[in-house]
């Protein structure tokens, strides 16, 4: 390998890891919702879009840095999620229907309404928050003068990555150590058992949807400094969230993180070494392969190891 090849490889790896960290955060919300409620939420990306608009307007009107908007958008999205679950999804889950999948179509309808409301109120213009540090980066040659290769790490990407990791850690702590978190996990693992143990399943479901929405809201705030925004942006992120959820295993926090990182690195490597046009195919091929060969996702591997089985 020549120095140039090594440079390309390492730069691709860095890009993949940073991207993967952000992907993980998008996937986390989905994995919770799917794990606890077995709901396929096709409005996931649209919820992210709503959060991005919140961050955008905070930036334009009050000059609030998008990273600070995490503290504004996350609670707002939490309440939006709670409202959606309580007033729209719960009534549908309650009734007897031939196919339980009709809730999926409900989320499609919700996504449609959110996207077209955004078009109506904010027009379909492309927007972004041009923060002053948007293109700053750390360069290897600045720290190591005689370096044979040059690597760069973007400042906003790194900040987004770090915040994503912090949020993930906080979520893990919440699910593993607090009572509410444990109840949510119980609901995910065995609904009937959780009911018998006196868990307020109904409340947990509402809370979960809220947390899932809040998480994707946070992801939106982390994405806007490095990306852009328009009303129809949701769909592609919903798909990414699915892939990560399946890769990581339903309802598994750690799984979603590893799944996100795998996906990020895999996509970046495909882009460099096969062709960027094929990157989406790669995404879905590992998705289907994982569905077939590793139905429990990364989480099932972890579990096996832990129990020495």
């Amino acid at each position: 390998m020549t120095a140039v090849q090594i440079e390309v490889f390492l730069q691709t790896l860095i890009a993949g890891l940073l991207l993967g960290g952000l992907y993980a955060l998008i996937g986390l919300g989905m994995t919770l919702i799917m794990g606890v409620m077995k709901i396929i939420n096709l409005a996931h990306g649209e919820l992210m879009m709503v959060a991005m608009y919140i961050a955008y307007w905070m930036f334009v009107l009050f000059h609030i840095d998008p990273y600070l908007s995490v503290f504004i958008a996350t609670p707002l999205l939490f309440f939006l999620g709670v409202a959606i679950q309580k007033f729209l999804i719960n009534p549908v889950l309650k009734v007897e229907s031939i196919l339980p999948e009709n809730q999926v179509i409900l989320t499609v309808g919700i996504g449609m309404v959110l996207a077209s409301l955004a078009t109506m109120f904010f027009k379909s213009d492309y927007r972004s928050t041009p923060v002053s540090y948007a293109t700053d980066a750390f360069y290897l040659s600045d720290y190591w003068k005689s370096s044979p290769i040059e690597l760069s790490v973007s400042v906003p990407w790194s900040i987004s990555f770090v915040i994503a990791v912090l949020i993930t850690a906080a979520l893990w702590f919440f699910l593993a150590k607090t009572d509410t978190g444990k109840s949510i996990r119980a609901t995910a693992q065995d609904l009937d058992a959780a009911l018998l143990m006196g868990v307020n399943v109904k409340l947990m479901r509402v809370a979960t949807f809220g947390i899932g929405a809040g998480l994707v809201g946070a992801a939106g705030c982390l994405f806007i400094p490095i990306y852009y925004l328009f009303p129809a942006l949701g769909g592609q992120f919903t798909l990414i969230a699915f892939v990560i959820t399946i890769l990581g295993g339903l309802g598994s926090t750690v799984g979603a993180i590893i799944g996100g990182l795998i996906l990020g690195v895999f996509e970046s490597m495909t882009a460099t070494y096969i062709g960027m046009g094929w990157a989406p195919v790669g995404r879905f091929v590992i998705f289907v392969a994982c569905l077939i060969f590793l139905p429990g996702g990364v989480a099932s591997l972890l579990r096996k190891k832990r129990f020495g089985k």
């Binding site: 729209l88 919700i110 449609m112």
Partner: peptide
Amino acid sequence: QTLFGVLLIVIII
């Protein structure tokens, strides 16, 4: 689209 989306939601519910 909003109108139609709301209609869908109402039908499903």
